[in-house]
Design a protein around this nucleic acid. Structure first.
Lengths: 154, 154
DNA sequence: TTATACTTGATTAATTCAGTCAGGTATGTT
DNA sequence: AACATACCTGACTGAATTAATCAAGTATAA
């Protein structure tokens, strides 16, 4: 299990945008430079974020991107869904045994384990919002430790 | 994020073995048939599980496999580590920015999020043991709901 | 001795991921 | 109006990972 580059880069970009002053925007070029990601890849990621309605753009010279909503209303989970289409894939759909019924139903009790794991992952990521992340690492640890999202899981 | 076939199949095989009577074994051929996995693939998975010291084998005619320890002492997390070498990959190793220091340290607070996510996933999977899974799905849900491993996370 | 079963590493086919490329469209500025 | 800047879009490709298969072997109970 791992975080893909799409997710990692999208998250970095969103945190950058979350750190902007009100009304300010950041151009794709500038984001590319700041995060050391190729301009083309930044474009692709921004495009997905825009389709997911997480960012808005202003065109033309001096244009750029900004968050579509306050950072406190955008979760890391939402960012991942936006760029990947989902967070944790259902196991039963992928490895059905050709039988009509999910193999897990009759053979063993694995399904609840994967289901609960998915809930745990999505629940956590949906509880972490961008405003909690606009700070150096040391501070963020403190914020996360006291955040409601964290307490719900711990 | 998803469960690979290696993990899914290894877990199914381990649950089968966990359901055996004491002293009983199950041959690779039988496992292949029961779980509808090719004999060659079953062999490869069993080989990994054996190297991870999660199963023991008895050779020769009438030979077969059995758990190396009581099912209550083998977690799903251990099974995954055995076949995949790990559970959740460190993000910072993968997407370092060419700089010496992890990009997350200075630029943003993403690292604690991925770190905590990893802990959550591994903590949960290490808490679910095979003996909790030897039952039809309906019963397992009840077991998991009352299990210590589950309560720790919920 | 012989069938059965486990052991091992190499190989390959399929899928997914990561990133690039090419060309287009819109809009602010001068 | 011209132009530079910036966003929009989808197709494409090479690399990496995953999912299995293949091909020989070795050990052991009957």
């Amino acid at each position: 299990m791992r975080i893909t580059s799409l997710v990692e880069f999208a998250a970095r970009i969103m945190v950058r945008l979350a750190g902007l002053a009100p009304q300010a925007t950041l151009s794709a070029d500038k984001l590319s430079e700041l995060e050391n990601i190729s301009r083309d890849y930044v474009d692709q990621i921004l495009h997905r974020l825009r389709k997911g309605e997480l960012v808005v753009s202003r065109r033309g010279a001096q244009g750029g991107y900004a968050l579509a909503r306050p950072a406190s209303q955008i979760s890391v989970g939402a960012v991942i869904r936006s760029v990947e289409g989902g967070i944790f894939e259902e196991v039963c759909e992928r490895y059905s045994c050709g039988e009509q019924q999910c193999h897990h139903l009759t053979a063993c009790g694995l399904r609840p384990v994967w289901e609960r794991l998915g809930e745990l992952i999505e629940g956590y990521l949906d509880g972490v919002t961008l405003d909690q992340l606009v700070a150096p690492e040391v501070k963020v640890k403190g914020v996360l430790a006291s955040a409601a999202a964290f307490r719900r899981m711990a």
